[in-house]
């Protein structure tokens, strides 16, 4: 049946758009929190991390989906881990080659993409039971939903914590108290616990808009 579906049928597009809101991996499915919080002190590492996860998740989904009928059920976790680890090694080597400073900043968190629950979760829940193209879209969608949260948190933390965005100054120098102005950077935003509070607030906003997500 689905063989005759056009590549971008409504059903397939829904795979892309759902994770942005109704089934967002971070705020609804609670997957992949660790790396989401630790790298978001600035915008640049957040963007690099988001792109890396998009690449790994989409490719891993496709590979596992192609192999889904040949993997014995009992050892599937190991097979999945090997596929993910191989992809992550690739991403790590590419980052080291082209954006060395960001790769230093991300340190162990690139390696931790292996244990990022989004990837295992999507492989288990989707790629093992669906065709490669759908799995690719699902991987892109979920990784993008993850990336959006990362970028929102990174945006606010860098703007309020350092007064810059992507390394460029946003708040004019003359505003700072040191230069006779009225403004001071909020040092709290750079500290790691504020990432948790920021995600908490994103969840609050999202669930106020979308009341069917409320837990009781």
């Amino acid at each position: 049946m689905s063989d005759r579906d056009p590549l971008f049928s409504k059903k397939n597009l829904k795979l892309l758009s759902d994770p942005m809101n109704n089934s967002n991996p971070i705020t609804v499915q609670v997957l992949g929190i660790c790396s989401a919080l630790a790298v978001t002190a600035q915008l640049k590492p957040s963007v690099v991390m988001a792109i890396s996860v998009v690449a790994v998740l989409a490719l891993a989904n496709v590979i596992i989906s192609l192999l889904r009928n040949t993997i014995p059920n009992r050892i599937r976790i190991i097979v999945q881990l090997v596929v993910i680890a191989a992809l992550v090694i690739l991403v790590d080597q590419i980052l080291k080659a082209y954006v060395y400073d960001v790769s230093k900043q991300l340190s162990v968190f690139v390696g931790l993409i292996i244990t990022n629950c989004i990837i295992m979760g999507r492989l288990e829940a989707f790629a093992l039971g669906n065709k490669p193209w759908q799995s690719f879209l699902d991987g892109m969608g979920n990784a993008a939903g993850y990336g959006v949260i990362l970028i929102i948190v990174g945006f606010f933390r860098e703007l309020f914590g350092a007064g810059t965005l992507y390394g460029y100054k946003i708040i004019p120098d003359s505003w700072y108290i040191a230069n006779g102005g009225f403004y001071e950077n909020n040092g709290l935003m750079v500290l790691s616990p504020m990432a948790l509070v920021a995600v908490g607030i994103i969840i609050w906003v999202q669930r106020s808009k979308n009341r069917q997500l409320i837990e009781d």
């Binding site: 705020t27 609670v30 500290l191 790691s192 616990p193 504020m194 990432a195 948790l196 509070v197 995600v199 908490g200 607030i201 969840i203 609050w204 906003v205 999202q206 669930r207 106020s208 009341r211 409320i214 837990e215 009781d216």
Partner: peptide, 23 residues
């Protein structure tokens, strides 16, 4: 707890506060 914060939301914020204490 305010309804949209129940469950996951409040857990995040409480963890943030515990993290501040650990700092």
């Amino acid at each position: 707890v305010p309804a949209p914060l129940r469950g996951l939301g409040i857990t995040f914020i409480v963890t943030g506060l515990m993290g501040l204490a650990f700092m």
